[in-house]
Computed example of a mutant assay.
Amino acid sequence: MTNTWAPYSFHYTIHPEAQSVKLVFTNVNYNGRGTARFGFDNAQICFPNDMTPALFPIPTVGNTGVAPASDILSWTNPAPLKNPNDIIRCDVWFRESATPLADPNLVASQPGVSKIVVNEPVNSVDLSSKGITLLQDHYYYWKVDVIDPNNGGTPIVIDGFTWSFKTGDAPPVANAGLDQYVWLSMDDGTPVDGKVTFTLTGDYTDDQKSPVTTLWALDEIQTQTDPATQVLIANPDQKVTPVTIDGTGWFFFHFTATDAAGSSMDTVNVGVYVDACAAAMADPSDIPAAYPNGYGDLNGDCQINMNDFVIMAATWLDCLSAKLGCIP
């Protein structure tokens, strides 16, 4: 370990009989003042005098696919050193570069470095509010210095790490749509064939820097149904596709969007029920929302009518339990 920047690499061959692999590494860059303690399967970073700097930046360190439209930088501030009611304040430094910096550690005196937040109690900054627009394929460096009020004493400034990211082709963000509640006898064109056909509608947001492909797939592990149930996805490589199922159950469909930068996946759940009443009772936005506890639907047929009134009349003034001090 050194206090200078240098590339490191290693090669590791996973044994063919290995049951699991755990890789732990860390970068200690606290201006040469951080120490690292390593164990067999863990790593711990310690800071002098418990002066923990700001951590967990978003965008993450080294991310090379940040969309230029991104506006927010965020981080996690440490707890106050002495008084938990103290308010942590921050200075945020920022620099843009068309090429990677030879020394990525930000220093106030460096050309191009600006302080975009001055002594503010924040854990994020909106770049657009500072007049900053990210440029495509550029490198960005930033750091957060934490100012601890020291319980009313002399404020303590805790130097932050320098974080960096690069704008570029970001993976698409998949959206599988809302959960659905359908039933075998619903009017899908063939309401009496013992099957139901419905539509999966996926979508994605993307920076359009490279072509996007999509794929629908059934998660057979999470899906809860009879093993004999057949599921047919008509056009799995299309955003919108019909699906036909011939049995009841709870089905998990994954929608994946992929481009040259990577992929993302979203999941939609589809409940298939025997009839419309069962589907309506299961849908939290339907009967459970409009009629909590079923209200007057005493026989559970999703209708409140004379049949329910007969049940109510027949049991009027009945004692339901001796625990209430009456005779059932």
Results as ranks from 00 to 15, higher is better:
residue 213 T to G: 02
residue 193 D to A: 12
residue 209 K to W: 00
residue 174 A to T: 12
residue 172 P to M: 10
residue 144 V to K: 05
residue 180 Q to Y: 06
residue 116 I to M: 03
residue 161 F to V: 12
residue 162 T to V: 11
residue 129 S to Y: 05
residue 209 K to F: 04
residue 133 T to L: 07
residue 208 Q to I: 01
residue 116 I to T: 08
residue 145 D to K: 10
residue 185 S to W: 00
residue 219 D to V: 13
residue 157 V to L: 14
residue 117 V to H: 01
residue 204 Y to C: 02
residue 115 K to S: 06
residue 203 D to F: 04
residue 129 S to A: 10
residue 131 G to Q: 08
residue 136 Q to S: 06
residue 203 D to L: 06
residue 133 T to A: 05
residue 119 N to K: 14
residue 215 L to N: 13
residue 115 K to N: 12
residue 184 L to I: 11
residue 178 L to C: 11
residue 133 T to N: 07
residue 175 N to H: 10
residue 119 N to Q: 12
residue 141 Y to V: 11
residue 142 W to Q: 02
residue 155 P to T: 13
residue 148 D to E: 08
residue 122 V to R: 11
residue 140 Y to I: 10
residue 140 Y to H: 07
residue 166 K to W: 02
residue 219 D to W: 09
residue 171 P to S: 05
residue 212 V to A: 07
residue 214 T to S: 06
residue 155 P to W: 08
residue 215 L to S: 02
residue 166 K to E: 02
residue 211 P to M: 11
residue 211 P to N: 08
residue 168 G to C: 11
residue 214 T to W: 06
residue 126 D to V: 04
residue 202 G to A: 10
residue 141 Y to S: 09
residue 202 G to R: 01
residue 162 T to A: 09
residue 175 N to F: 09
residue 188 D to C: 14
residue 206 D to Y: 07
residue 166 K to Y: 01
residue 178 L to R: 14
residue 189 G to Q: 04
